[in-house]
Amino acid sequence: MPSYYAPTGGLPPQTDLLTDRAIVTEAYTVIPRGVLRDIVTSTFPGWQHTRAWVLAKPIAGFATTFAQYLVDVAPGGGSTRPEPEAGVQSVVFLQAGELRLTIDGAEHHLTPGGYAYLPAGATWSLTNPGTEPASFSWIRKPYEPVEGLAAPKPFTVQEQHVEPTPMPDTDGAWATTRFVDPDDLAHDMHVNIVTFEPGAVIPFAETHVMEHGLYVLEGKAVYRLNGDWVEVQEGDFMWLRAFCPQACYAGGPGKFRYLLYKDVNRQITLT
């Protein structure tokens, strides 16, 4: 049964040491779960009984294509108009609790592992109908239309109902759960779940144009970021600019899994 780490906030005791793994460089940022505390949350207009940790936003000279949040919604909280920008698409992935999601008048019930794609221009709302807090990842990206391609439609699915795709030549030790067909060029972003069995690796330094947001859902690993090897665990977030070399070694004892954003399927704009 998959597990999904969700932050709880709070503050560390005064007796704790200040040593932590948080780091910001010109190529990558690591936001460990230990810094996701109450005093660094944001509140958004139009949301009730909700707080959010903003993990990524476009910054000149760094990653520029997306924003990513961890959102905590108390029972009865939510928003009737969560997206303030008409040209922005979203993915919502639920880690804890339950959500009632209404998209263009159709109601959907999400439980942990629930995934929703919300296209630009869709009318949607989100509430927590349960008795416990709901925690979800929210990824936002401006949609880049292409002449002759129809925009994607909204959909919801549970991760448990999507079969992971083993990566070539790995015997299933490294697999990707894809919620969108990679050949569907209407989509200009992919938000997948990547899973490594204990001992599995990314056996080369990936160096590519796609920007990344990686939220660790489960387990621990050593991740290569630019020229550094960094220990990460469930609840940590990694933010990678384009062309930042990356690799991974999953040491175990359990699976290492993360939610991965990347921008895809568009020509490079030069003018």
Rank of each mutant, 00 (worst) to 15 (best):
M1L: 09
P7L: 12
P7D: 12
T15P: 00
L18K: 11
T19C: 00
T19G: 03
I23L: 12
V30T: 05
G34Y: 01
G34F: 02
S42H: 14
S42W: 09
F44V: 09
G46T: 03
Q48R: 14
A52P: 08
K57A: 15
P58K: 02
A60N: 07
F62L: 07
F62E: 04
T64A: 11
Y69F: 12
L70M: 14
G87N: 12
V88K: 02
L94D: 10
L101N: 03
I103A: 02
A106I: 12
G113C: 07
Y115P: 06
W124F: 15
T131I: 08
A134K: 09
S137A: 15
I139F: 11
V146G: 10
L149N: 08
F155A: 00
F155R: 01
Q158G: 14
Q160E: 15
Q160N: 10
V162P: 08
P168W: 08
P168Y: 09
G172P: 03
G172C: 06
A173M: 11
V180Y: 01
D183F: 02
F204C: 00
G219T: 09
K220Q: 15
V222F: 11
N226L: 03
G227W: 06
V230E: 04
Q233T: 13
D236C: 09
L240G: 02
Q246H: 15
A247Y: 05
G251A: 06
L260M: 14
D263R: 08
R266I: 03
T269P: 00
